[in-house]
Amino acid sequence: MTATYFTGLLLGFGLIIPIGAQNVFIFSQGLTAGMPRALWAVVAAGVCDTILIVLGAVGAGVLISSVPGLREILLVGGAGLLIYLGVSSLRAKVKDEEEAADPDVVSVRGVLFKTASVSLFNPHAILDTVVIIGATIAAQQMADRMAFTFGAVTASWVWFLVLAVGAAMLRQFLTPRRRLWFDRVSGLIMLFFAGLLLFELGKSLA
Rank of each mutant, 00 (worst) to 15 (best):
T2S: 08
Y5G: 01
G12I: 13
F13D: 05
F13M: 11
F13A: 06
G14V: 12
L15E: 07
I16Q: 02
I17N: 06
P18M: 14
G20P: 05
Q22V: 14
I26A: 09
Q29Y: 07
Q29K: 12
L31V: 06
L31C: 03
T32A: 14
P36N: 13
P36G: 11
P36A: 12
P36M: 12
L39T: 10
W40R: 02
W40N: 05
W40T: 09
V42P: 06
A44S: 13
A44G: 08
A45E: 06
A45H: 06
G46D: 06
C48G: 02
C48P: 04
D49W: 12
D49F: 15
V54L: 14
V54M: 08
A57S: 14
G59A: 08
A60W: 09
A60P: 02
S66Y: 06
P68G: 09
G69N: 11
R71F: 07
R71A: 12
E72M: 12
I73P: 00
L75M: 11
V76P: 01
V76L: 15
G77L: 15
G77E: 09
G78Y: 11
L81V: 08
L81P: 00
L81A: 00
Y84E: 02
L85A: 09
L85C: 06
S88T: 14
S89V: 01
L90H: 05
A92F: 00
V94G: 00
K95W: 01
D96S: 04
E99D: 05
D102T: 05
D104K: 09
V105A: 06
V106N: 04
S107L: 06
V108I: 14
R109A: 01
R109F: 09
R109W: 10
F113S: 04
F113T: 10
A116V: 04
S117P: 02
S117M: 15
V118G: 02
V118A: 08
S119N: 05
S119H: 04
L120S: 09
F121D: 01
F121V: 15
N122R: 07
A125P: 00
I126S: 04
T129A: 09
T129H: 05
V130A: 03
V130S: 03
V131A: 11
I132D: 00
G134W: 04
A135H: 08
A135D: 13
A138F: 12
M142F: 13
M142E: 15
D144A: 15
R145V: 07
M146D: 08
F150R: 10
F150L: 14
G151W: 11
A152Q: 07
V153M: 13
T154F: 02
S156H: 11
V158G: 03
F160W: 12
L161V: 13
A164H: 09
A164L: 13
A168W: 03
M169E: 12
Q172L: 10
L174V: 06
T175Y: 04
L180P: 00
W181P: 01
W181I: 07
R184G: 01
V185I: 15
I189V: 15
I189E: 03
M190T: 02
A194H: 06
G195W: 09
L198K: 08
L198N: 03
F199I: 11
E200Q: 14
E200M: 05
